[in-house]
């Protein structure tokens, strides 16, 4: 890996951090994995490829709502950032088809944590 310099770090402005417009993040800490997050992650990657849906699928840590893991956060242009809980393989496919492709949010899986 390339050596990082002071300037590399100083020039970053975290407030301008841009993950891009379309992405999915799967919580992959122990609590998530225990609830089946790695299956969900694999399903998302496979199915997105199969269905020709272009979206950036990433891993992240735990957001804290451990009782409703696996958590999947979805950001699609034109829709608010949404956190889905208790996501299964089937729900993952629905997220891809309904949310990402057709821009419709799923019923009964959205969690607004405060």
């Amino acid at each position: 890996m390339k050596k990082i310099t002071k300037e590399d770090i100083e020039k970053v402005d975290p407030s301008k951090k841009d993950l891009g417009k379309n992405w999915i993040k799967v919580g992959m800490s122990t609590c998530g994995v225990a609830a089946g997050a790695d299956e969900v992650y694999a399903a998302l990657i496979d199915e997105a490829k199969k269905r020709n849906i272009e979206i950036d699928i990433r891993k992240c840590g735990c957001q804290g709502a451990c009782s409703v893991e696996p958590l999947v956060e979805v950001n699609v242009e034109g829709l608010p950032k949404v956190l889905y809980g208790r996501v299964t393989k089937d729900v993952a496919v629905t997220i891809l088809e309904r949310h990402v492709r057709n821009k419709k949010l799923l019923h009964d899986y959205i969690f607004e944590i405060n």
Binding site: K6, S29, K59
Partner: peptide
């Protein structure tokens, strides 16, 4: 936690990481 990829140094730096060290 839950926002960056924990396995990516770039992600941490992009979120303002290692600024305190500098």
């Amino acid at each position: 936690c839950g926002y960056i990829d924990p396995e990516s140094l770039e992600d941490y730096i992009a979120a303002g990481g290692y600024k305190a060290l500098v």
